[in-house]
């Protein structure tokens, strides 16, 4: 029996087949395929804030990318460019808090990493270009930015992302975000872009709690998902 890995879903109007602008629960198939390729079975978790009972059916949790977090989660007013989804915020916060309490392996991707930071008491920058003076983390609508990051030696992030071609802990990643982690709360930052933007956070006291600001599911990175699935097996 393969481990079961839950992936949180988007809720957005979508068009597919005969359906036009239909309210839908959905996720890029690349997340599912990454989990499948790592030897686990993905199930998708639409937002729901009743309880976290569904975790009993799961061996690991992926908090997926998506819209901005509501700044109410870290006690701030929304900025002019902040676009949030309160239903996802409520449902995913509930799942993540319960997963952290029970030591369920957790991988946060992009928005998911930001939720990890906020859930652990941190805060976000609501619009990175205002902070770093560049849009290299999201060069344009629907366009990933590729840039270098430096990984902390010995960290979980370095273990799953590798030492890079030069063996110096520097790798290139694909990012697509206009917000970023300002304060990681109780988590440890273990990767940075050259402009200082936080690229990975983790909790070294837990078996597997990792957030990455980039998109390994779109880049065909396998080791990060294999490591999550390994943790899910124990």
């Amino acid at each position: 029996m393969r481990p079961i890995v839950g992936i949180t879903s988007y809720v957005e109007p979508a068009s597919w087949g005969v359906w036009i602008d239909q309210d839908a629960a959905l996720i890029r198939k690349s997340y599912v395929d990454a989990v499948t390729a790592a030897g686990a079975r993905a199930v998708i978790l639409p937002p729901d804030d009743t309880d976290a009972d569904v975790l009993r059916a799961l061996d690991a949790l992926i908090i997926a990318g998506g819209a901005d977090l509501g700044p109410d989660l870290y006690g701030e007013e929304p900025g002019p460019l902040t676009d949030s989804r309160p239903d996802r915020d409520r449902g995913e916060s509930l799942l993540l808090q319960a997963a952290l309490r029970t030591d369920l392996p957790v991988l946060g991707i992009c928005r998911g990493m930001q939720l990890l930071a906020v859930t652990c008491g941190g805060r976000l920058h609501q619009h990175l270009p205002d902070v770093v003076g560049s849009d290299k983390h999201r060069p344009g609508p629907g366009v990933y930015g590729w840039h270098g990051i430096t990984l902390e030696p010995g960290s979980l992030a370095a273990e799953v992302a590798g030492d890079g071609p030069e063996g110096d802990g520097r790798i290139e990643v694909n990012t697509y975000h206009h917000q970023g982690v300002a304060d990681p709360g109780s988590l440890t930052v273990t990767a940075w872009a050259d402009d200082g933007v936080v690229e990975a956070v983790e909790d070294p006291t837990k078996p597997f709690v990792l957030g990455v600001q980039w998109h390994p599911e779109e880049a065909g990175e396998r080791r990060i998902f294999e490591s999550l699935v390994d943790a899910a097996r124990t």
């Binding site: 087949g17 839908a24 959905l26 890029r28 690349s30 639409p46 609508p141």
Partner: peptide, 24 residues
Amino acid sequence: TTYAEEARFGLNDTFAAVLPLAYV
């Protein structure tokens, strides 16, 4: 059970696992 199809949402046009929210 879900559809797995090419879907358009927001700025995305991608292969997706997708289901009308009414079922959920």
